[in-house]
Amino acid sequence: MKILVCISHVPDTTSKINFSDGDTKFDTNGVQFVINPNDEFGLTRAMWFKEKQGASVTVVNVGGPETEPTLRKALAIGADEAIRVNAEATDGFFVARQLAKIVKDGGYDLVIAGRESIDYNGGMVPGMLAALTGANFVNTCIGLEVENNEATATREIDGGKETVKCALPLIIGGQKGLVEESDLRIPNMRGIMMARQKKLTVLEPEEAQSQTTAVKFEKPAPKGEVKLVSPDNLDELISLLHNEAKVI
């Protein structure tokens, strides 16, 4: 089985978000970038398929040279090779178009992407990629098995979960649950050394137009002071929630 894991390179979850150039650009100053958390769960699940079922694992990112350390980290965790499509990821559609070409050319059976990137929260790429390639698509995937070209996937639904079956090729939008938090791997020295030798192919992008542009950013309005209520005076809390906030 050939697996492609799509890796989006995002600001660490603790990052303070700031903008530059008159609020038109995300300010990457002092921001640390990581593998998108949803993709890290997917990558770890891919390692399981590699170790238990002999799958090969390629990781891919559409982005500039600055994303290579993130791809190297994925190699250090255990992916076999990496591809970087050398282009700015202008929108989800543009990225999906680039990935569609990689998927077709590489003949991947299983594409593991994340439910969403935590930067733009688009939740676009895996579904668009499925629609562009005609592959099956399961979103909010929290469990995945593959046996004889057939996948059994568990998907989180409102208030529970659902198990579905379908043929490969399959694209998933994954999240925590694919593996547990405690299964995530921190690259060790050996992995880091080996990653340096692994193949990282840089491809030039396909011609494609993005459909949307982020033209400006805004930060939320600063929050007012919290109103403190004494634990001995909970009637006041109820009254505030009822009369002032009008939420109960």
Partner: peptide
């Protein structure tokens, strides 16, 4: 955007 840490004005073309 940025999981509610910011807003983004998006132009759809």
């Amino acid at each position: 955007a940025f999981t509610n840490k910011a807003f983004n004005i998006t132009e759809i073309r």
